[in-house]
Design a binder for these strands. Structure first.
Lengths: 165, 165
DNA sequence: GCTGGATAGTTGCATACGCAACAAGAAGAC
DNA sequence: GTCTTCTTGTTGCGTATGCAACTATCCAGC
């Protein structure tokens, strides 16, 4: 019973995946910072709320969507609330639960970030793919993302890991 | 002159790319931590040194390879040196330059990390791709990685961004 | 040789993150 | 009703990161 050993093509694919992701990510973050805008962490959280029905989610659900630990999310929500981009709402049905709710100011911020983010995606990612390549890429990566679905549970369970800046 | 707007297929590809990467990354980091092994940051740096001729690189070169800022690398090298996985060597030709050199203990550590890392790649990434898909994937992602090559220069220039854990 | 500017790496400080411990509340057993 | 156990979010602490400022060194012009 040796550990599964991916064939060479798969390893090379991973290596390039890894490197290109970090580079694109760093480049987009740099663009956002240069434009005086918040980082992708903020965007991710705000956008998940924007998509949610009623523009609010409970903390733990948001943590999963935003790929953060519960404690990481608490702090992120602290910062977002300080900037008045979201509001905390206690749940009347369950006293333990807090909901994060997107404010109008939050929506406005999303709208400011998106053009820069979109331009970054175009420049650093999309520019290198034909339409057909993008479709095939989306299909394959979709399989991976779908398979990794849960990864949830508490602080623990490695549900997390986001960059510092 | 409106900003370049990637077509829908490209945006969807990016979205899935982003999500799947974080999930795979988090899962692999969790596996490494569960095995009591250092994180991928350490692996990346050690592996770059392993590949380098003479198993050493100057700090700034290593920072680029390891996708860290110069200051981030200084601290990472501090930690690696404390664990005796690398050694700092001053360059006799240029007093400003420091070289990080992989020790035998460092090689040994690499060899301990790799099976766990490889198994993670297999489980979370490779398992979902056929050989043909992996080859196509590598080709396309390779184009992206190649285009993003430099991103270098000092602390600044967004050459960086690595996760906190 | 000297001097002024460029370059390499380090350090102070601020920030963002995870984990473990915790507090508040809910839900089930009885 | 009360007690135990589980769940949810928060807090203390340690750690990893980037940026800006700094030091030491090199190099080009003179």
């Amino acid at each position: 019973m040796k550990p599964p050993s991916p064939p060479e093509a798969h390893l090379e694919a991973w290596r390039r995946y890894y490197v290109s992701f970090w580079r694109i990510f760093a480049a987009i973050e740099a663009d956002l910072q240069a434009a005086g805008l918040p980082s992708l962490s903020w965007y991710d959280a705000l956008y998940e709320l924007y998509l949610a029905p009623g523009r609010h989610l409970r903390m733990s659900a948001l943590a999963r969507s935003a790929l953060l630990s519960r404690s990481g999310l608490t702090r992120l929500v602290d910062r977002l609330e300080q900037e008045k981009l979201i509001e905390r709402k206690s749940c009347p049905k369950d006293g333990r639960v807090q909901h994060a709710m997107l404010t109008d100011r939050g929506v406005e911020t999303l709208r400011k970030i998106w053009p820069v983010y979109r331009a970054g995606i175009a420049k650093y990612f999309a520019a290198h793919l034909t339409e057909a390549e993008a479709k095939e890429f989306a299909r394959v990566v979709g399989k991976i993302a779908a398979a990794m679905q849960p990864a949830q549970s508490g602080d623990t369970a490695g549900a997390s890991c986001k960059p510092a800046r």
